[in-house]
Design a protein around this nucleic acid. Structure first.
Length: 821
RNA sequence: GCCCGAGUGGUGGAAUGGUAUACACGAAGGACUUAAAAUCCUUUGAUCGAAAGGUCAUGCGGGUUCGAAUCCCGCCUCGGGCACCA
């Protein structure tokens, strides 16, 4: 009897061997085919690694290990996305500098990661808070500025009064702060903005080039929100002025009876003296401003609005005079901040009814009963139909009418085709200490010289990068919405790089998405001091072949980083040959929930710490369980009892491999199952069907256990190799025990024997009217005639058939025969 | 409201047009043990039956097919995303 399975001893031993020998080092420019695998680098929180990280990291580790054995030069790197609020908050609470907290947390994460045996290339570890790293994050910002994609603007931002920070739209969930759940307020602030909207079309179009899960593509497309329509021009009566409106339903223009402006529309400011009831209008605007987005977009709420008295416009199609209103459901940020209103829009319809604004209909639905109600303006019809009341377009279908009406109005100078997006520019300023300083300088003197809003803003010169975070005692955020950096006069005051006069540094810092925008590039050349990464090395490694991460980043990190990559590609910081997409393939893992299916959280006390599982069961068990627990993309509740099953499997393997290896040849039957298992696992890993990979191994060892002689040395080595991506420590240990050459992790991935898998005999399923009535053993490749003969000879079948007439016989080769009576 | 995804034993799940319930957990019984744990063996969808065996079952209702968990239509429930987007 051999020694008892001792995971702690085995795992520490092999981790040491792997990491000390550089077994997982990726080689730049190797002649081997490259394979770049990426998992989202974690935010190193004080809580340590989450079992959710383990799911994603183990899955791609399985792929990485397999690829290496298939002869690829694999890059599987890891680093730390370490800027961010929780660290800052913790640092404030404990009175320690965030960099010290970060160091402590990353050390802990690294220890935990190594204890799981993931095959990361630790020589390429990066940290977004390292000045050598964020030098290039700042450099990218400067390039954005130089290319007109970064600008400062006074906008109403989402303000979290608890975190004391401005939030991007993506960080606001249900009108609440994503992190702390506090209701988000509106605040006017000067903010750095990034023109991601310039890339909206490409961010959608280029999705065709990549292999992302369909739901990821859909979600990004929906978020960007492309809609095709027309820009319509309305002449304002009595003034030399026009109002532009974006519409996707130009086919309804003949029913347009009024125009609605967003309360913040610039027209109102420009023509204050022309609006007879300007006080009322401005009062309405104030009310709207003070209500939060969530109130404003509450659809159950009654529709409100105010007419701009004294202002009318002409409908470009009917030439009729239309009143102009303002209402809060019209948004400043979308389209042109103005809509033409008609009977074929529910909100417009509701508003017209409420304020007795005349309505006219021009679209006839197919349903006749409904058509009558619509015609009488008793019901609002929003769908597509047939046009009437529409002059020469009468009788056309909506879809046919739209291009024709655009052409017609365009010829009169009133319309042009237009694409509109929901995506908004990216608010890039944060009023916090623990982030990358925005490398900009404001010079009042220079500002007076130039007329543009950006006048006076100068980027820090490249030779002066990085702009390091000053080491300060106080980094508590302020209530005034100013960054804590603004209190450090010595740091803020600086010479203007343009005129040499006294200027001031930007005191806002970047959002925590800044560092992760380009980290996949840095991994290729992590120590480069001259560039963000050397072009030839980038050319070798990029694009990332397979990127796995959480669905929650689909409209955040994933979108941002695609945008930034495109930008870097455009300015040729990335070689043209790489292409304009950073990630070839993107997949997503389901969340690991707490036991009982609720989200793991500290407050619920249901958090599973990987350390505990490793200590109690071993890393291989944890890895195996995370792969076995269920389909990879699916959300799944943690079940510690399920872990036990995986540990049992590992012990069985351990015992079998130490006791049941035969000096003779492997049993025929077992050999066949082995090759089937090799096939199954080779295919399943590629399809991310890790759960069935594991179950097929379980089936195999169950067969091994009941086999007469067991496996011979060669065959057992094959099994150890296919086991090794999942349970690498165990495989390595058993490899050594069996006195096989080299390390298991450096072997060649086995090929299965096609011939061996072929079945000589099959179990022919015999159905009568689609119901299974018998199972007959038959030779593989049996013909229909032979099969029929065989079936008719069966007593069972005879009994079922009786006197009935056989109408038809369906034969599926090597599978089934169905007799229809 | 709109757009995705999912619904299968006591539980996690397998099977994507051809043997439904693989694999694992749990449970019950047994072996070993003074005992327990561990391990091993047996049973384990429901139902009728002494058994052989039958019948029913993949959220619900219909359809296509020799044959449907799988494809189509309608509905219900749950999860996710978007949401006065003109």
């Amino acid at each position: 009897m051999s020694a008892k399975y001792n995971p702690k001893k085995i795992e520490e031993k092999w981790q040491e061997k792997w990491y000390n020998s550089g077994a997982f080092k990726a080689k730049n420019g190797s002649k081997k085919k490259k394979f770049y695998l990426l998992v989202e680098f974690p935010y190193p929180s004080g809580d340590g690694l989450h079992v959710g990280h383990c799911r994603s990291y183990t899955a791609l580790d399985v792929v990485a290990r397999k690829r290496r054995m298939q002869g690829y030069n694999v890059l599987y790197p890891m680093g730390w996305d370490a800027f961010g609020l929780p660290t800052e908050n913790y640092a404030i609470k404990k009175g320690v500098h965030p960099s010290i907290v970060t160091k402590k947390n990353t050390d802990n994460f690294r220890r935990q990661m190594k204890s799981l045996g993931w095959s990361f290339d630790w020589s390429r570890e990066i940290n977004t808070t390292d000045p050598k790293y964020y030098k290039w994050t700042q450099w990218i910002f400067i390039q954005l500025f130089k290319n007109g994609l970064a600008y400062k603007d006074k906008i109403a931002i989402n303000w979290c009064s608890s975190c004391k920070i401005g939030l991007a739209n993506e960080e606001v969930i249900d009108g609440k702060c994503e992190r702390c759940g506090t209701k988000v307020e509106k605040r006017e602030k000067e903010q750095w903005m990034i023109k991601i909207t310039n890339y909206a079309d490409r961010l959608i179009k280029d999705l065709d080039q990549v292999d992302y899960l369909e739901k990821i593509k859909t979600q990004q497309k929906d978020w960007i929100g492309e809609s095709h329509g027309a820009l319509l021009r309305f002449k304002v009566e009595g003034i030399e002025e026009t109002l532009d409106v974006f519409t996707t339903r130009i086919d309804t223009i003949f029913s347009g009876t009024f125009l609605i402006l967003a309360p913040g529309h610039a027209f109102i400011d420009k023509y204050k003296n022309k609006i007879e009831n300007i006080d009322e209008v401005l009062k309405y605007r104030e009310e709207v401003k003070n209500s939060s987005d969530i109130d404003r977009t509450n659809q159950d709420k009654d529709i409100t609005g105010v007419q701009l008295k004294g202002i009318t416009v002409r409908n470009p199609a009917t030439n009729e005079e239309m009143p102009v209103w303002t209402a809060d459901f019209v948004l400043e940020q979308y389209g042109t901040g103005a809509v033409f209103a008609d009977a074929h829009d529910k909100r417009d319809f509701k508003m017209a009814k409420k304020y007795s604004i005349p309505l006219r209909t021009s679209i006839k639905p197919d349903d006749e009963a409904l058509a009558q109600k619509v015609k009488n303006s008793e019901e609002c019809f929003e769908g597509e139909g047939t046009l009437y009341n529409s002059m020469q377009f009468d009788g056309l279908k909506s879809i046919e009418a739209r291009p024709q009406i655009i052409l017609w109005l365009a010829s009169k100078g009133f319309a042009q085709p237009k694409v509109s997006y929901k995506l908004r520019d990216w608010v890039f300023s944060r009023q916090h200490y623990w982030g990358e300083p925005i490398p900009m300088i404001y010079c009042k003197k220079c500002a007076l010289m130039g007329g543009s809003p950006q006048a006076g803003w100068r980027p820090v010169e490249e030779k002066d990068l990085p702009v390091k975070l000053p080491n300060v005692k106080k980094y508590v955020p302020t209530d005034t919405g100013e960054s804590p950096l603004s209190a450090i006069k010595k740091w803020v005051e600086i010479k203007c790089p343009e005129c040499g006069g006294l200027a001031q540094r930007e005191t806002d810092t970047m959002p925590n998405w800044a560092g992760s925008n380009w980290y996949y590039l840095r991994y290729t050349d992590p120590k480069n001091g001259k560039k963000l990464a050397d072009e030839s090395i980038v050319k070798y490694w990029m694009p990332v072949d397979w990127y796995n991460g959480g669905m929650e980043h689909t409209t955040l990190h994933l979108l941002y980083s695609r945008f930034i990559f495109k930008f870097l590609w455009d300015i040729k910081a990335v070689p043209a040959t790489v292409g304009a997409e950073p990630y070839k393939k993107r997949t997503s893992h389901g969340m690991v929930l707490g036991e009982g299916g609720i989200k793991m959280s500290k407050s619920k006390g249901n958090v599973i710490n990987p350390d505990t599982i490793v200590k109690q069961y071993g890393a291989d068990t944890l890895r195996l369980y995370e792969m076995f627990m269920g389909p990879f993309e699916q959300m799944i509740p943690w079940d510690t009892k399920g872990v036990v099953g995986c540990r049992r499997f590992i012990e069985k393997v351990y015992n079998l491999a130490t006791n049941k290896i035969t000096a003779e040849k492997t049993d025929e039957g077992l050999k066949k199952i082995l090759h089937k298992t090799i096939k199954k696992i080779s295919e399943d890993i590629e399809l991310m069907k890790f759960n069935t990979s594991v179950s097929s191994m379980m089936e195999f060892i169950n067969a091994w256990q009941v086999s007469e002689k067991g496996l011979d040395k060669k065959d057992s080595s094959y099994f150890l190799i296919i086991l090794s991506p999942f349970a690498p420590h165990l495989a390595e240990e058993l490899w050594e025990t069996a006195e096989l050459k080299g390390m298991c992790s450096q072997q060649k991935w086995p090929k299965f024997d096609e011939k061996l898998i072929e079945e000589k005999n099959i179990l022919l399923i015999v159905q009568i009217n689609g119901k299974v009535r018998d199972k007959i053993e038959a030779k593989s490749g049996i013909s229909q005639k032979e099969a029929e003969k065989l079936v008719m000879a069966s007593d069972k079948i005879k009994a079922f058939l009786g006197e009935a007439e056989v109408k038809k016989i369906i034969f599926v080769p090597n599978k089934l025969i169905n007799i229809v009576i």
